[in-house]
């Protein structure tokens, strides 16, 4: 009963905030609504018993991706009014994609309604050992059976990072940078010049 209540609460919030993402006039508000949608989807995952996915969603999507969006929206001068201008022009195309998706959903759900025995062909959910959270279950195989894949994926990400730095980082000339050791190493002899000043004459 209570989980039913939370399910409808979370899903209503996801739908409402997803709607706000595409309708909000201020793009910053749009991104904030996106974050709200992510949080509510995480709630839905929790209700399904997939707490690991819920955590990942919050950490990766809210913590990294959405914040990155926020930076992009705030730092880059994107003219959103101009982007929206083509809305009517792209409407037929978008509507076609939407209708195709709707038909596919109806076919999937309708298939279950028409022949209920189809449900039994869907693979049964994997039953984890009791008293083990699914985070622990994933951790147990990720760092044992799949440690090779895990480490290799780490190397691939490292290569991607090196590549991004090699191809884009430029040492700009003429930019003032703080050099703490140079500042500390300054002595009166190198930074102060004593000039004899005659009284009343100025410099």
């Amino acid at each position: 009963m209570l989980s039913g209540f939370f399910f409808y609460l979370f899903s209503a919030m996801v739908v409402a905030s997803a709607f706000m993402v595409i309708t909000a006039r201020n793009p910053v508000h749009g991104v904030l609504f996106l974050i709200l949608a992510f949080f509510n989807s995480a709630g839905l995952f929790l209700l399904l018993g997939a707490e690991f996915l819920a955590m990942i969603l919050v950490i990766v999507y809210v913590g990294a991706v959405a914040v990155l969006f926020l930076f992009v929206v705030m730092m880059l001068d994107v003219d959103f009014a101009e982007l929206r201008a083509g809305f009517i022009k792209y409407l037929p195309f978008g509507a076609t994609v939407g209708i195709i998706l709707l038909i596919e959903l109806i076919m999937v759900l309708g298939g279950w309604a028409i022949s209920p025995e189809l449900k039994s062909t869907v693979a049964a959910p994997f039953k984890a050992a009791p008293n083990i959270t699914n985070t622990e279950a994933i951790g147990r195989i990720l760092y044992t059976d799949y440690v090779y894949f895990f480490e290799l994926a780490g190397l691939i990400l490292l290569v991607a990072m090196i590549g991004a730095i090699v191809l884009t980082l430029r040492q700009k000339e003429g930019v003032l940078r703080q050099d703490i050791s140079a500042q500390v190493a300054r002595t009166p002899a190198t930074s102060i010049e004593v000039k004899p000043v005659k009284p009343g004459a100025g410099l």
């Binding site: 290799l152 190397l155 691939i156 290569v159 090699v166």
Partner: peptide, 21 residues
Amino acid sequence: SLYLGLELQSLALYVVAAFRR
């Protein structure tokens, strides 16, 4: 492991091809 090895190789090669940026 086929895919991961291939991708580690390819990703490094893509960067090397564009090395004279």
